[in-house]
Write a protein that binds this DNA or RNA. Structure first.
Lengths: 341, 341
DNA sequence: CGTTTTTCCGTAAACGTTTACGAGAACACA
DNA sequence: TGTGTTCTCGTAAACGTTTACGGAAAAACG
């Protein structure tokens, strides 16, 4: 099973150097010999040992995505990533790169696992998600000079690394606009910790839009919970018990909305009927919920592909002739109107 | 950043051999020297290059989990895995092993990616999920003699590899028993393709229990759909439009149930009121749905830990003194009674 | 035919580890 | 003092690649 380049060379009676050159498509090898090598490689089922190759080349030809069970939760956060990873992997594969997903241990917010990946040189670059406003991972990676890209931004938004984010601020504002246009003025916002940057951005858009409409921000209508079903469930009653309860709620993600709607149901409040509900980040859940939830849909698969491009473009070793460059993009979210608002 | 064992050796004025032995805890190195090496390693922030180590040792010290966007769907299937992977990773980490998750390209059912992992020796073993009744991946891995374990069984259920599965057959039967005890006799089953082994097992249990209760199996009450929301949504109306419609439905998983309930709602049928609903595999979705869905909950995180143990026990290089052995286990599913039945 | 260029290939070093082997020093023992 | 044992360490080979270098043969050119 473990056929090495030596086996190939012995089998063909030529030197390993020639075999390697033939396999790697170098110019200085006769067309005949190349073909013989290729045939033999197919016959012997040869494929290069990754460790040997990485060691020699000083590159692993793989990119790591850091996947983290979110603090305070083990279940949520990942269905979101699957289409994204599909796009990421597809684009990386076009450049002959492997995508590996590294599971973080719960709790340490990836510092330990990230260090491990970097220090043992398991990947040539990493992709981060769940970016925080102050993100120690970003600091670490820039400090040690390890290539990376982020899905999401951090506060500094430094120009030193590529990032692709969604325009949560605009989505927050648009949600408010839409609700105000439908006559709502008591609009609640259920969001995760502001340390998560998308929560921060959402709230900024929410505030700005309310201001634009001359509506005063009522702190009693803003609540923070864990970014999962339990969080939404726990926190929604708080805003509903406000002296002057909301007639509409904007949830920062689908899981919180699900929990929130559960709480509403228990209070006898029906979304789309007694109260308007809008969700910022759409998943299939939203469309199959009853009532179907109006939500902002991110184009996850294209985002994955794009971030792969941006990452590769930022790394000299992978960037083509035009040289490395840092790209930062913010994509709009598209509202899918359904039955809940 | 790239401090190697040579840097350490030069810095301490000793040979690289000694450094390596000190780092690896070998006996033939003086206690003083060992300490000096350890200190220097910490100071220089040394950690061994993974490629070099793998090359020399002939082992990567990492285990690959094959993650696959399910055919016909990009969004579903993965929240299920997160707690499982958390357990898997935790246990592997105790043995100094890394868990990497390898994304399959959509469509090829992992064959191509799996071959790549195996042939380039990227991992020492792999873990498979979504086992099919006839599983080409299992055939391939056994044929080439690559170590692996499965979450789920295949038809053959060969004794050659460790596997951990849930007792879907018993759960299917228990669901029927429960519904019959509550007076139902027209019980529908919504399931995925029988090529997926858990779908097959579920149906077997369903049939067996019906037989035990002297209820004839009505093919019109059994429907097959894609294992996602869309599948449940599409297929549920079929059984409802049966001449003699069901008074209860058992869904084979949460996503199908979600889609099915959507379809029911559109038909004006209310789960837990007009019809009983039971879900075989529980996720947080089920408890936050309205009404909360009665479901069978798998202990995912312990399953991950256990499968890691079983995998390691099956590999001579990792098994302790007692030698390698193949363990196969089937765990019960626990019913969580909620409001839908 | 002599010279230069091109084509093709073998040699060997290097990447960063681990480890078998052997040797010097220290020590124990008679 | 001589012999044997135990500690400790250095040397060097090996893992499977890639690639710089050089050289032999073939081709091109005058």
């Amino acid at each position: 099973m473990a056929s090495s380049i030596h086996d190939l060379a012995r089998h063909l009676n030529i030197s390993i150097g020639t075999v390697s050159r033939a396999l790697n498509g170098r110019a200085d090898v006769n067309a005949d010999t190349r073909q013989r090598v290729l045939d033999a490689a197919a016959k012997l089922n040869y494929s290069p040992n990754q460790s040997g190759r990485s060691l020699r080349r000083g590159a692993t030809h793989s990119i790591a995505f850091m996947l983290q069970p979110h603090p305070g939760d083990q279940q949520y956060g990942e269905p979101f990533f699957i289409p994204f990873l599909t796009g990421l992997q597809a684009k990386l594969a076009e450049s002959g790169l492997d995508l590996i997903v590294v599971m973080g241990a719960p709790g340490d917010y990836q510092q330990e696992r990230l260090r491990r990946v970097v220090e043992t040189r398991r990947a040539d670059a990493v992709v981060l998600a769940w970016t925080r406003r102050e993100d120690e991972r970003i600091d670490y990676l820039t400090r040690v000079g390890f290539p990376f890209a982020t899905l999401g931004r951090s506060r500094s938004g430094g120009k030193s690394y590529p990032s692709l984010d969604l325009d949560f601020e605009k989505a927050g504002a648009e949600a408010v606009d839409r609700l105000v246009a439908r006559g709502h003025r008591r609009i609640a916002a259920i969001r995760p910790s502001l340390s998560l940057n998308f929560g921060y951005l959402f709230l900024a858009g929410y505030r700005k839009a309310l201001g634009r409409h001359g509506i005063e921000v009522d702190p009693g209508l803003i609540a923070e919970g864990f970014i999962n079903e339990a969080g939404g469930y726990e926190v929604t009653p708080q805003v509903m018990r406000s002296k002057d309860p909301p007639t509409a709620i904007i949830f920062n993600n689908d899981a919180m909305a699900l929990g929130g709607c559960k709480a509403l149901a228990e209070m006898g409040v029906k979304p789309g009927h007694d109260i308007a509900v809008i969700v910022i980040v759409d998943t299939p859940l939203c469309s199959y919920f009853s009532p179907a939830l109006t939500a902002f849909r991110p184009p996850l698969e294209p985002m994955g592909r794009r971030l792969a491009e941006m990452l590769l473009a930022s790394i000299p070793a992978f960037a083509g002739a035009e040289g490395a460059r840092i790209i930062r993009e913010v994509w709009p979210l598209e509202l899918i109107a359904r039955d809940s608002d």
